[in-house]
Design a protein around this nucleic acid. Structure first.
Length: 678
RNA sequence: GGCGCGGUAGCUCAGUUGGUGAGAGCGCAGGAUUCAUAACCCUGAGGUCGGGAGUUCAAAUCUCCCCCGCGCUACCA
């Protein structure tokens, strides 16, 4: 289909920390390359982004730092915006969701859906802090992780062992606001009934089988697997965000994932009075660049919202990337395992394009990928310096040496010249084809092939020899080399904008559009170029070692922190302790619970009786291993059904920092089944 | 356990309507060369295409089973 215009969005980064290479590689860099390409082709395109500034983590950070949420987002909005700018991410607007225009837009959007009856109201029980007099978001509740005993697990996830949790799973939960023990209290919220919308969403997804396999596959998985889509709350009990604009919603705000994608709309509004044509005209192509963590929101929830609203076009493509790892480990903000853009700029001043190049060449397009400093160095030294930089330098040096910097005339083309020119002229289309398929690695590799072609041309024609015997011929060779250099500047603008700019300056030429690179006469004879200057410089081992050491230091620091032992729980009386009845028992039989990864069904002789206990130890004990072993059994725990099996008690396990379990049992063999543990 | 994506040369990846002896870049080895940041250029070595079974005249490509990585999901008192 031929579109009149494009609207490109890049995921709104969450304003609670700076930007790292994973963000860049996964989302902002490919988006920027794509947009630069569209602009270079002369397309009507808008590129919008902004900070995502609502949600619970920001309020927590604010509390921790003793500042207001607004101060937190102001700080990171600036840091992130500056980092993007420094790396040449060419947003037409970098807005923010705390802006007035966004609040208005999001609020209006919600109202439309509300009035259309799109939402269902549901009353659920949520933890409530009676001292602070407010409902507690999952993140506001901390407690002991049932899996790894980390005392500071959040209500939605334990950051130590990575388990996702629900607040009610936490052992001894407490409010981070007041420290009080939260109580369950009823609250009403508005849900988007995705289950009912599922057929429309499915139809929409199935219209796009051309989406990247990871994206399409994951959407299908969400739609088809298990119980399918579930209703999702679009409002929250919180005081930081866009107030819910309907009666009876005091103290509630829009769910951050409801308001964030609307941020794309508000940013467009802020950018241009013509915003509606980018959002409501079927001839506009809407593309969301995101990381894989956002697929469900951009492919399912946001389109569902847009469909319900009715006025807007739907995303035509969502080319999500996978994740970038760093030196073999997952990038982690909290563990400081990251390369921060603002720090990179200090250590590698004016080397934005080197990082852009490395991240694009190694982009996690089809699967998670690894960034290593060694590879970064190799790509700089062996590719940017040796292939691209070197070709340009050879050409410029020879031009000055032979012609005092003036472009010589191509007197007469011979057959091999014509072949080269023909090949050179094909590059814009070749690269474009890859870009349009969101194959950025391939596009970049193709771009480098143009520089390779130039090097090869010089090596084969050997102008430095011919200059002594056939000076006329050399003019043509150098003319062609200069044309290639110019085209490298044109096509390089999308990948390496800083280098491209520098190159145009060296060539003393005004930047050309994409189609210009199909020409091989952009440098007219007699045109004076500037004195050569290196485009790239080698990166030495010492510079790389510094970075690696920096990471090792972060790792060491983490290990030290992890080894901290959780402090003791609050005191109980002896009477309370006496209520607990622990006995020694022997495992008679053990088998895996089918359909569950972590569960073993145990038959235990407790001395009192033989009873069935289901225990989540399958990852640490095979049935054969545990069979016949003595264990400690909490025998007076209320029975509970697990996976359809009634579990009568629990067996006690010791758990180490890694969450690994070990049976707690007598160390002498003089204890009978039924013996009490005191 | 279920679902999705992926597992191809040392590294990063191309390659499926099944069919010329399985490819590219980087790395490595050798050669050639000096205009160029010891760069470029040429040649070469290197692969049980995760493992096994099957369908077929023919499978990296189709089917089944298994293993590994990433993610979602269930279970974990």
């Amino acid at each position: 289909m031929n579109y009149k215009r494009h609207l490109i969005t890049a995921a709104l980064p969450y304003a609670n920390g700076p930007v790292h290479i994973g963000h860049l590689a996964g989302c902002y860099l490919p988006a920027d390359i794509y947009v630069r390409y569209l602009r270079s082709k002369g397309s009507d395109v808008k590129f919008v982004c902004g900070s995502d500034e609502h949600g619970v983590p920001i309020t927590i950070k604010a509390k921790k730092e003793g500042v207001t949420p607004q101060q937190v987002v102001d700080k990171y909005h600036k840091i992130m915006g500056d980092a993007f700018k420094e790396f040449g991410i060419s947003f037409d607007i970098y807005s923010r969701t705390s802006s007035k225009i966004h609040h208005q837009t999001a609020s209006d959007f919600f109202k439309v859906l509300y009035e259309k009856g799109s939402f269902t109201e549901q009353t659920t029980e949520q933890y409530y802090d009676e001292e602070a007099k407010q409902f507690l978001a999952d993140r506001y509740i901390v407690g002991t992780c049932p899996k790894c005993a980390n005392e500071n697990a959040y209500g939605d996830q334990c950051e130590k062992c990575g388990t996702s949790l629900s607040p009610t799973e936490l052992i001894s939960p407490r409010s981070t606001l007041s420290g009080a023990k939260p109580v369950l209290k009823k609250t009403k919220n508005w849900f988007l009934p995705l289950d009912k919308l599922s057929p429309d969403i499915k139809k929409y997804i199935e219209q796009h089988p051309d989406w990247k396999p990871n994206v399409y596959g994951q959407c299908k998985s969400w739609l088809d697997s298990g119980d399918g889509l579930q209703p999702r709350a679009m409002t929250r009990d919180l005081d930081w965000g866009v107030p819910v604009p309907v009666p009876g919603a005091e103290g509630k705000v829009l769910y951050v994932w409801f308001d964030a994608p609307i941020g794309y709309i508000s940013a467009t509004k802020e950018l241009t009075s013509n915003w509606a044509s980018y959002w409501k005209d079927k001839e506009t192509r809407l593309i969301h660049f995101i990381g894989k963590d956002n697929i469900v929101f951009h492919c399912i929830i946001f389109p569902a919202m847009l469909m319900q609203h009715g006025d807007f076009i739907l995303p035509d493509n969502v080319p999500a990337n996978e994740f970038l790892n760093l030196e073999g480990d997952k990038i982690s903000t909290s563990r400081n395992w990251a390369v921060w853009l603002h720090e990179y700029l200090i250590d590698f001043k004016d080397k934005q394009d080197v990082l852009r190049y490395t991240l694009c060449a190694n982009a996690p397009e089809t699967k998670d990928n690894d960034f290593t400093w060694k590879d970064f160095q190799a790509k700089n030294n062996n590719e940017l310096v040796a292939i691209l930089g070197n070709f340009v330098n050879r050409t410029l040096v020879l031009t000055h040496k032979y012609y005092e910097g003036k472009v010589p005339e191509a007197a007469q083309y011979i057959k091999e010249d014509l072949l080269i020119l023909e090949e050179v002229a094909r590059f814009p289309d070749k690269i474009a084809q890859a870009l349009e398929a969101f194959k950025f690695r391939e596009a970049l590799a193709e771009y480098m092939n143009l520089a390779r072609l130039g090097n090869k041309y010089l090596a084969e024609t050997e102008p430095w020899k011919l200059i002594k015997t056939d000076a006329e011929r050399v003019k043509t060779i150098m003319n062609i080399s200069l044309q290639i250099t110019c085209n490298l500047a044109v096509l390089g603008e999308v990948f390496l904008p800083f280098t491209s700019e520098k190159l145009f300056a060296l060539l003393n030429v005004n930047p050309l559009k994409w189609g210009g690179a199909k020409q091989t006469n952009n440098m007219p004879a007699g045109h004076l170029i500037r004195k050569e200057e290196l485009l790239f410089s080698k990166i030495e081992d010492t510079e790389i070692d510094i970075q690696i050491q920096k990471l090792q230091a972060a790792k060491k620091k983490n290990e030290e922190q992890v080894s901290a032992i959780a402090s003791a729980k609050t005191a109980i009386s002896f009477e309370e302790f006496e209520k607990i009845d622990i006995r020694i028992g022997t495992v008679l039989e053990a088998e895996k619970v089918k359909g569950a990864d972590k569960l073993l069904k145990l038959l235990i002789d407790t001395g009192l009786d033989k009873r069935v206990i289901v225990s989540g130890i399958a990852q640490f004990y095979t049935p054969e291993e545990i069979k016949g072993k003595q264990v400690s059994v909490l025998v007076n725990l209320a029975p509970r059904k697990i996976k359809g099996i009634e579990s009568q008690g629990m067996i006690l396990m010791a758990q180490n920092q890694q969450g690994e379990l070990s049976v707690v049992a007598p160390v002498k063999n003089n204890v009978n089944n039924g013996a009490g543990v005191k």
